[in-house]
Structure formats: C-alpha cells, structure tokens
Design a protein around this nucleic acid. Sequence first.
DNA 1: AAGGTGACTAACA
DNA 2: ATGTTAGCCACCT
Length: 107
Amino acid sequence: MSTTFHDRVIAAIRTVPTGRVATYGQIAGIAGSPRAAIIVGEILRRNSRTHDLPWQRIINRHGELSIVNIEYPAELQAELLRSEGVEVVKENGIFRVNLAQFQWKGA
DNA sequence: AAGGTGACTAACA
DNA sequence: ATGTTAGCCACCT
C-alpha cells in the first residue's frame, strides 16, 4: 500500500485520544520522521478543514497553541480542548497546556 | 519544473 | 535566555 508521510501523519493524529494532546514532533516521530514536525503543521493547516481531524490536540513542544490560521484561531482550539477536559491557561495572549499532565504518551 | 515558505524542533553560539 | 542554522516534506507560486 502506498503509505505516504502524509497518510501516516493523519493516522498518527487520529491515534491521539480525547482529553490528551501531542506535539508536532511527536506526531512526526510516529509517522516516521522525527524532524518533520513542520510538515505536520503544514498537513494540518491544509487538511483540518477537509478531513475530520482532531487538529486541536496538536500543539508545539512548549505546550503552547501555535495556531495562526484565521479560520481556526487558538481561541477556538482552547475551547475545544477544554470541552474534552484539557486545562488551558492564557498567559500574555498565549494559550498553554501543561504537557507534563496532558501530553499523550504513546506506547 | 524549481524554488520559497511554513500550525516545528534540536543543536549550537 | 535569545538568535541562528539545518533538517524534514508538502504545498503554492
């Protein structure tokens, strides 16, 4: 089967359970390329609207919501995460999640 | 077709 | 701690 990096990223994202978050690098690693974190962001930016992805669970390594997309603002992402039970705090205009507590530990 | 860019990260000065 | 450099792969001009 033709498993492209793109497909593996999509699959990896769907693996993240509700109420947990994962970092871009983490998803990239599961997909097979630990250094391709930025590609995960690219794929999400392009597919969160067309596919039915839990894009809100993917944040950066500092536990911050790095969304810049006007259609999917960090504010909305924060709301979605809170509705699944993830605590999100806002500091200096930056939304943050306590990774030590909410980051998903795959395997 | 080719080069620039990006919801990123790690390593190094 | 902040700034720079390199690496990753797909999408857009």
